[in-house]
Design a protein around this nucleic acid. Structure first.
Length: 286
DNA sequence: ACCCGTGTTCGCTG
DNA sequence: TCAGCGAACACGGG
């Protein structure tokens, strides 16, 4: 279940798997219509014989550019939704469960788009004109690739009465920040998630901007440590992993605050904001 | 059985 | 006109 760090890992994996490769055959899997909506999966034939040229990530979006067999560019826009992932299977291996799309490459390997809940999307974009898609155009600068302009962020946050936790999940502000990174960033910045966004001072927004970047960097580093992007065929999402929860507060309701001193009593609280769980420490987040 | 979920979109309301 | 809200999408895991 992907936020910016998980999608960044998917981008790195796909670049490695597709470098210099061509698609031998693209096939739709079970229930693919839902994933392709509104475009029809028969358009997939356009991918046959296409060669990978470039792959960009903006927020949670993967933008793949290919050179079509008959010339010209084709774009593929992939959004992983809540349960989507890209996995690689060597030639001859069985398709994974819930494969919605199967790209067989010219080295015989298969790239599968796997998505049990099908909240994700895969759409072909003629001539790879990604900039003309309203969904892409609406995105703000990518926090990892472009950095965060704290002054601009402060100005935007001044215009909303939403709680700061809800506000920073707006993909037009901080694309790629989702429910986990929002909680983690606010804990790092020591800001109460319930505060109205417009109540944050410039200095607090600057602190938050640094915290968002630190949280993303930390999550990516924890993936590297776990071997998630170390050349493996699959990405193993955090909640599926056997190892310990790598986050400071996310999923830790009732546990001690990481900043708790010897003899302290502060614990992590779970609340619901905009129908999503928020985790925070009421003692150190003000 | 029941509850929960790392995301987005749509229709309604004030 | 538009920010904000809640339902809906759909399935698997604890």
């Amino acid at each position: 279940m992907p936020e910016l760090p998980e999608v960044e890992v998917a981008a790195r994996n796909l670049r490695r798997w597709t470098k210099g490769r061509r698609i031998r055959a693209a096939r739709a899997g079970a229930h693919a219509l839902r994933v392709f909506r509104p475009a029809a999966p028969d358009a997939l034939a356009a991918l046959d014989g296409a060669r990978f040229r470039d792959l960009r990530r903006i927020g949670k979006n993967l933008l793949i550019t290919l050179d079509a067999r008959r010339g010209g560019a084709i774009g593929a826009w992939s959004h992983l939704g809540l349960t989507g992932k890209w996995v690689r299977r060597a030639a001859g291996q069985p398709a994974p469960k819930n494969s919605r799309l199967d790209l067989q490459l010219d080295d015989g390997a298969h790239l599968h788009y796997v998505d049990p809940r099908m909240f994700g999307r895969f759409r072909l974009v003629p001539a790879a004109r990604f900039d003309e898609l309203p969904e892409i155009r609406a995105l703000g600068p990518d926090p990892l690739t472009d950095g965060i302009d704290a002054a601009a962020l402060h100005q935007r946050l001044q215009r909303t009465r939403l709680p700061i936790k809800v506000a920073i999940m707006d993909q037009a502000l901080l694309p790629g920040v989702g429910n986990i990174q929002a909680s983690e960033s606010l804990f790092r910045a020591k800001i109460d998630p319930r505060r109205p966004a417009k109540s944050l001072s410039r200095a607090e927004v600057a602190r938050l901007a640094r915290a968002v970047r630190a949280s993303i960097d930390f999550t990516l580093a924890s993936f590297a440590e776990a071997g998630v992007d170390g050349g493996g065929e699959d990405i193993v999402y955090v909640e599926e992993r056997r190892s310990a929860n790598p986050f400071l507060v996310y999923g830790r309701a009732g546990e001690p605050c990481p900043r708790r001193k010897r003899g302290g009593r502060e614990t992590i609280t779970r609340i619901v904001q905009a129908q999503r769980s928020t985790f925070f420490c009421a003692a150190c987040q003000r």
